[in-house]
């Protein structure tokens, strides 16, 4: 690339500055067009499977793309257990998010504002689940539940057992989002509150918590998605009859592909898209997704 623009030759005090040549303008145009084409192709690549899923759902009998015969038949054929699985997934995701938030909030305050020894180590400890693949966590909990069974603790295959797995799954995401936000809050705001006579709890409740609202929403949103998408942990913590939606779709597709499967997938796509658009409208997706 060094041929494109050489440093102007230095001739004593009066260096001759060469104006940009016309060929460099052409080069710029080619560069920009090439860049645009690549980006457009990548965006198409990202969208392709989503479009395919939705359109495939309108096949009447075969799974094909583009669809062979248009019909809404597949949507009518979605069996009831699919919706039960959807409901299970939504419940687990929502509850896991709320519980993880309740656990992460005090921890965040202590880890950012607290004065204590070994803070760095504690921080690493609380974030460590992020470094363990979900499938390993699933296996580990599965073995724990088996080991607990003889003691009369029946977590294996239970809703509570599944919920615990998902809380562990989403906890580090929520913690990270909260940590970033609390660290960004001006400590003077909290000091001002103390100076006006408010104690620690009141300051946290009236000043810190309201200022964390956007981060809480972002974290909750992300956690919901992570939980809703999970197959690895649920694989070990549910039984084939009572699995979460992604797992039910996976099991069914392992048997055979059918338009019904795509109809259910299309419903999930629309559900997620609506969620994404609502978040984008209300908070701006970019502010929610990018970390502080």
């Amino acid at each position: 690339m060094t041929t494109v623009m050489q440093a102007p030759p230095a001739t004593g005090d009066t260096a001759v500055v060469v104006p940009p040549s016309r060929s460099s303008a052409r080069l710029d145009r080619i560069w920009r067009i090439g860049f645009g084409v690549i980006v457009a192709a990548l965006l198409l690549f990202l969208l392709a499977p989503l479009v395919v899923v939705i359109l495939t759902a309108f096949n009447d009998r075969l799974v094909a793309f583009p669809p062979q015969g248009w019909s809404l038949e597949s949507f009518r054929n979605v069996p009831g257990y699919m919706f039960e699985a959807l409901w299970l997934s939504v419940r687990v995701a929502a509850l896991a998010t709320v519980i993880a938030m309740l656990l992460a909030f005090p921890a965040t305050i202590a880890l950012v504002r607290g004065e204590m020894r070994g803070k760095a180590a504690l921080l690493a400890f609380f974030q460590s689940p992020l470094q363990v693949p979900a499938i390993v966590q699933g296996l580990a909990l599965y073995q724990l539940y088996i080991a607990l069974n003889p003691w009369g603790v029946a977590l294996r295959g239970s809703f509570t057992g599944l919920l615990i797995g998902h809380v562990i799954l989403v906890f580090p995401f929520i913690l990270n989002a909260m940590l970033g936000r609390v660290a960004a809050i001006d400590t003077n705001l909290e000091l001002a509150s103390y100076g006006l006579g408010a104690g620690f709890l009141r300051t946290t409740w009236l000043v810190t918590l309201p200022l964390m609202r956007p981060a809480l929403i972002a974290a909750g949103f992300l956690a919901f998605l992570v939980s809703f998408d999970d197959t690895s942990i649920s694989l070990f913590l549910t039984q084939v009859g009572g699995a979460t939606l992604p797992l039910t779709l996976l099991y069914t597709s392992e048997q055979a592909l059918s338009p019904m499967l795509y109809a259910m997938s299309a419903i999930v796509v629309v559900f997620s898209l609506v969620l994404a658009l609502v978040v984008d409208r209300v908070f701006g997706l970019r502010t929610v997704m990018s970390r502080d």
Binding site: L46, P49, V52, V53, D229, Y262, V269, S272
Partner: peptide
Amino acid sequence: SMFMSGVVRALG
């Protein structure tokens, strides 16, 4: 596209 469940994307 990140919001779409991984299973759904794989099916696509």
